[in-house]
Simulated assay, not measured.
Amino acid sequence: MTVGLVAVTGTSGRVGDAVARALEAVGWTIRGADLAPGPRTAIVGDLRDLRVRRALVHGADLMIHAAALHAPHVGRVADAEFRSVNVDATAALLRDAEAAGVRRVIYISSTSVYGNALVPTDRAVWVDEQLPPQPRDIYDETKLAAEALVAAASMPSVTLRIARCFPEPLPVLATRLLHRAVLLTDVAAAVVNVAAQDTVTGVFNIAGRYPFTRADGVALHDDAAAVIAERAPEVAAEFQARGWPLPKTIDRVYDSGAAMAAFGYQPTEAVLRLLREPRNGEAPTPSP
């Protein structure tokens, strides 16, 4: 798809703003919508409002839907509100986008939809798109329901299940980036790649570049530190230099191989980048 007008929901949030900035940088015209004001939010309002939805999608070539209630809202927001925001508003938005002639949809989902399937038994779980989701809470349920709506829409669509990407203490984040977290810049780059390729459809994991293979599953479960020392000695050395223990066990590894093959997604070596290129003593910011 050549660049044009892209309607982006959630542009005042971390993921939506990063995606909008990255698309803008390659020539897309951004029209953003969010409940809260933001530098790339042209329309401030609730997506459950017909006027907001129609103003957002009018004349748009592409729609990227990133707005949602997220995992931190579980237990603080009623389940009915989750369904209203994450499912009902998505259904209405898809109908209005179709009526407005939007040609393609990219939906920002989460690897959280795998839910209870992420719990290991005797080995680390290898998480690719063939792993059946087992939602464990209202967030997982509503994100998976929204994925189904997007897949059933008349417009071609891509769903990106993005890995963990919110700020955490540096030692925790460094460990997460070994197997289950992703940098925000990588998420934005993935969306830019998908937006540029009309023929790509389907569901894809968007995670980091990790040093493990599926065959490492048992060893990662039993003695992750030894596997890290073998597979990623530079990372092990960086941990040792800081006095941080390597994890004793790793419960899962996200696999972005399908996204790499389908649209050229190329995640960075995030752990070494995090540890070797601090910004005024702080880590580069990852995505949700």
Rank of each mutant, 00 (worst) to 15 (best):
R54K: 12
V57G: 03
V57M: 03
H58G: 02
H58T: 10
G59K: 06
L62H: 07
L62C: 09
L62T: 05
M63L: 15
I64G: 06
H65A: 06
H65N: 01
A68D: 04
L69E: 01
H70E: 12
A71Q: 09
P72Q: 00
H73E: 13
V74G: 12
V74H: 03
G75C: 00
V77D: 05
A80L: 14
E81I: 13
E81G: 12
F82D: 06
R83Y: 14
S84C: 06
S84Y: 10
V85H: 09
V87F: 00
D88P: 05
A89S: 11
A89R: 13
A89Y: 09
T90R: 01
A92V: 04
L94M: 07
R95Q: 15
D96C: 07
A99N: 06
A99Q: 10
V102F: 12
V105I: 13
I108Q: 05
S109H: 05
S110P: 01
S110L: 09
T111A: 07
T111I: 13
T111D: 10
S112E: 12
V113K: 01
V113W: 12
Y114S: 06
V119W: 10
V119K: 15
R123N: 03
V125K: 01
V127K: 14
E129I: 00
Q130L: 02
Q130K: 11
Q130S: 13
Q130C: 04
L131C: 05
P132D: 08
P133A: 04
Q134Y: 05
P135F: 04
R136Q: 13
R136E: 15
D137Q: 05
I138N: 02
I138W: 10
Y139P: 03
L144N: 00
L144W: 11
E147M: 00
A148S: 11
L149R: 11
V150N: 12
A151T: 07
A152I: 01
S154F: 07
S154M: 11
P156G: 14
P156S: 14
L160F: 09
L160K: 06
R161D: 07
I162T: 11
R164Q: 14
R164K: 15
F166C: 13
F166L: 13
F166Y: 15
P167S: 11
P167F: 04
E168Y: 05
L170M: 15
P171R: 12
P171I: 08
V172C: 04
L173M: 14
L173P: 02
R176N: 15
L177Q: 13
L178N: 02
V182T: 14
V182E: 08
T185G: 14
D186R: 02
D186S: 00
V187N: 04
